[in-house]
């Protein structure tokens, strides 16, 4: 058998599902960031697969920009996390509900 686009899309979908489930079940903010990265990676995989199978360049370039934005996002997010940890001594999201109500 030969590989088609649906194999790659299934792997991408399962990776996205794993990241999303992790986002819902975990409460450590560091792990939540890792789950965000997993989901971005899944989307990157789908975009590269579409780019390959439709033989257009757009998907590849979009993945390039997504990687750029993801790197910036991780840097800013982790800086916020460090600042938050300085104030609250915790990275667990259930203890960071200051904006609730």
């Amino acid at each position: 058998m030969t590989l088609g686009i649906h194999e790659f899309l299934m792997v991408s979908g399962l990776l996205f599902a794993i990241g999303f489930v992790g986002l819902l079940i975990r409460r450590n903010a560091l792990i939540l960031f890792m789950c965000l990265e997993l989901m971005l990676n899944a989307v990157n995989l789908a975009l590269v697969a579409f780019s390959r199978f439709t033989e257009t360049m757009g998907g590849n370039l979009f993945v390039f920009f997504i990687i750029t934005v993801a790197a910036a996002e991780v840097a800013v997010g982790l800086a916020i996390l460090v600042a938050l940890f300085r104030k609250r001594r915790s990275v667990y999201v259930q203890e960071l509900g200051a904006l609730k109500n």
């Binding site: 030969t2 590989l3 088609g4 686009i5 649906h6 194999e7 899309l9 299934m10 979908g13 590269v48 780019s51 390959r52 199978f53 439709t54 033989e55 257009t56 360049m57 998907g59 590849n60 370039l61």
Partner: peptide
């Protein structure tokens, strides 16, 4: 999505040309 993969009438990996 995997079951309905035939919906995508695209070339397979061997037939398509890498662009990037």
């Amino acid at each position: 999505l995997y079951k309905r993969g035939d919906y995508f009438t695209l070339a397979t990996l061997r037939e398509s040309v890498p662009v990037g």
